[in-house]
C-alpha cells in the first residue's frame, strides 16, 4: 500500500505556501500532521498532484492564550493542545474531547487545524469548535477572513474553505463565568472515531440555567446543535428537563446511520449521552 507519486514542497514562509495553493488549486493538498492525509494517500483515496508541507513555515502562530481567547495555530499538535487545556478549567471541554482523539502517537503529530480542515463528521474537533463558538481564520493571497464554526462545516469533508485558503488559526473565545461543560462519546474502542458523541455546555447564573449548548457529532453529515433540546433545559436545573432534552434531541435532528450503526441506534445513543452528560453537569448545581 504505497501512495501514488506526488510532488512535494516545503515552503519556509506563509506567502510561499499561499502562492503554491493559488497556483495549484485543487491539485494541491496541505500536509500538516499527515495523520488523516497520509492514510488517504496510502489507500490512494487521495491522489494530489502536490503536497504543500506547512511544517517548515517560520512565524506561524503557535498556541497562545490571553484573557479573551485561546489561539491555536496550524502546527499545534493535539498533544500540545491537550496539555494546555488540561491545565485550565475553562478549557475542560477541549481537554475531555482531545483525550478521545485517536491514540498518543497520533496526537503527537495530528493537528487541531487539520482536523477542522478535514471536517470528518465523527471527529471531536469540529464538535467542540462549534460548542465553544470558535472562529476559523482562513488566509489566502487575497487576505484573511474569519468564519465562525457554525458557518464553516457544510457536510461530510466539506467546509467553507476555498482550495487556495489555509487555516492559519482557530480561536476559542474564553467562556464567560458560569459556563460548565461536559463531554462523552461512544466508540467501539478507546481512540476510535465516535459512533455518537456530545459536547454540552450550560451557563448557570443565580441558580438558573440561562444558556445551553448541545452539540452532537457522529450522527449527521456535520456536528449539529439541538435547539429544542437546549431550550427545554433553560430555567431551574432539574431531572425532568434532562429527560425531556434527551428525548427532544433524537427527535428534532435528521440522524443518519453509518456503517454498522443505524440511525435508530444513534438516536438511542444520543438519548443515553444526553442523560449521562447533563445529569453529571447539573448535579451539584445550585438549586439541585
Amino acid at each position: 500500500m504505497k501512495p501514488a507519486p506526488f510532488a512535494y514542497a516545503a515552503p519556509r514562509s506563509l506567502d510561499e505556501a499561499l502562492a503554491l495553493l493559488a497556483e495549484h488549486g485543487d491539485e494541491a493538498q496541505i500536509i500538516a500532521g499527515g495523520q488523516s492525509l497520509v492514510p488517504m494517500l496510502a489507500l490512494r483515496m487521495a491522489t494530489p498532484g502536490i503536497l504543500v508541507d506547512i511544517n517548515r513555515i517560520a512565524g506561524l502562530p503557535g498556541l497562545l492564550e490571553d484573557d479573551a481567547a485561546l489561539t491555536v495555530g496550524p502546527c499545534v499538535r493535539h498533544a500540545e493542545l491537550l496539555r494546555h487545556a488540561g491545565r485550565h478549567r475553562h478549557w475542560s471541554l477541549i481537554a475531555a474531547a482531545v483525550r478521545e482523539v485517536a491514540h498518543p502517537g497520533i496526537r503527537n503529530r495530528g493537528t487541531l487545524c487539520g482536523s477542522i480542515a478535514l471536517a470528518d463528521p465523527a471527529a471531536e474537533a469540529p464538535a467542540y469548535a462549534l460548542a465553544l463558538d470558535a472562529e476559523i481564520v482562513l488566509s489566502s493571497l487575497s487576505g484573511e477572513r474569519r468564519v465562525p464554526a457554525r458557518k464553516f462545516f457544510r457536510g461530510v469533508y466539506e467546509t467553507a474553505r476555498a482550495p487556495d485558503e489555509m487555516i492559519t488559526a482557530v480561536t476559542f473565545p474564553r467562556p464567560a463565568p458560569g459556563w460548565r461543560f461536559g463531554f462523552q462519546e461512544i466508540a467501539r474502542r478507546h481512540g476510535d472515531y465516535a459512533i455518537a458523541g456530545l459536547c454540552a455546555g450550560l451557563r448557570l447564573e443565580a441558580g438558573r440555567i440561562t444558556e445551553v449548548e448541545l452539540v452532537y457529532f457522529g450522527i449527521a453529515d456535520r456536528p449539529m446543535r439541538a435547539p429544542q433540546a437546549e431550550r427545554s433545559l433553560l430555567g431551574e436545573p432539574n431531572a425532568d428537563a434532562v429527560k425531556e432534552a434527551a428525548a427532544a434531541a433524537g427527535a428534532e435532528l435528521e440522524v443518519e446511520g453509518t456503517g454498522e450503526s443505524s440511525a435508530a441506534l444513534k438516536r438511542q445513543l444520543m438519548r443515553v449521552l444526553t442523560e449521562r452528560v447533563l445529569t453529571k453537569l447539573i448535579v451539584g448545581a445550585p438549586g439541585q
Binding site: I31, G34, D53, A79, P104, G105, I106, N108
Partner: peptide, 13 residues
C-alpha cells in the same frame, strides 16, 4: 523525543 507512526510520516519530513 515523541512517539510517532513511521508509516504516517514521510522520510522527507
Amino acid at each position: 523525543g515523541v512517539c510517532v507512526r513511521g508509516c504516517l510520516m514521510l522520510a522527507v519530513q
